[in-house]
Computed example of a mutant assay.
Amino acid sequence: MTPRSKSKLVFAGPSRSAETLFKYISPEQVPVQYGGLSVDPCDLSLEDPASEIIVKPGTKRTVEIIIYEKCEIVWEIRVIGWEVSYKAEFVPEEKDAYTVVVQKPRKMKPSDEPVLTQSFKVNELGKVLLTVDNPTSKKKKLVYRFNVKPL
């Protein structure tokens, strides 16, 4: 093989394959079986960009999605390698209102669904909080995307 041909190839082991793919292809275009967010059928489209966050060992990271109107919000979340706890809740803007638990804290294992897709109908202003707790000694990559559909 010529040096030029070799320079066009990238090799990655199973534990680094998703991370390597994300350097060249956006997570929303990579199929689930390769560590991405692309699933069929899906309420999200390629126009809904994915975001990535690093969750350091022994820390929690929260994604905050501000809701400005009555709507239905749909999101996908994936943590490469899982082995984390995940929860989702809606916090209304009104001071006297109660927080709504959308997803109780749930320990996610690598054998669980590779991508979690959830939706929630919002009838008041507030914010959706997606929290990932990483109790392991390894950093994790959190990939998520969402879409807000007015009611």
Rank of each mutant, 00 (worst) to 15 (best):
V63C: 04
E89F: 03
E89W: 02
W75D: 00
R61H: 14
Q118A: 07
E93L: 14
K107I: 09
K87V: 04
Y98R: 12
D112F: 09
P114Y: 11
G81W: 09
W75V: 00
E76T: 08
R106K: 15
D112R: 05
P110N: 07
G126P: 01
Y68L: 06
R106T: 15
V91D: 02
L116V: 13
V115I: 14
P105Q: 11
L125I: 12
R106M: 11
C71M: 05
P114L: 14
P114E: 12
A88D: 02
K127D: 07
Y98S: 12
E89V: 06
K107T: 13
W82I: 02
V100Q: 15
T99W: 02
E83L: 04
G81V: 10
I67H: 04
I67C: 06
T99I: 15
A88E: 01
K70S: 13
K127M: 10
D96G: 07
I67T: 08
S85M: 10
K95S: 13
I66Y: 12
W75A: 00
V102Q: 01
Y68I: 05
V74F: 15
P105Y: 01
D112H: 13
M108N: 05
T99A: 02
T62Y: 07
Q103C: 13
D112I: 05
D112W: 09
E72P: 02
M108D: 06
M108L: 15
N123G: 13
V101E: 07
Y98W: 09
I77Q: 01
C71L: 03
V84M: 02
I73R: 00
R61N: 12
G126Y: 04
I65H: 03
S111K: 11
V91K: 04
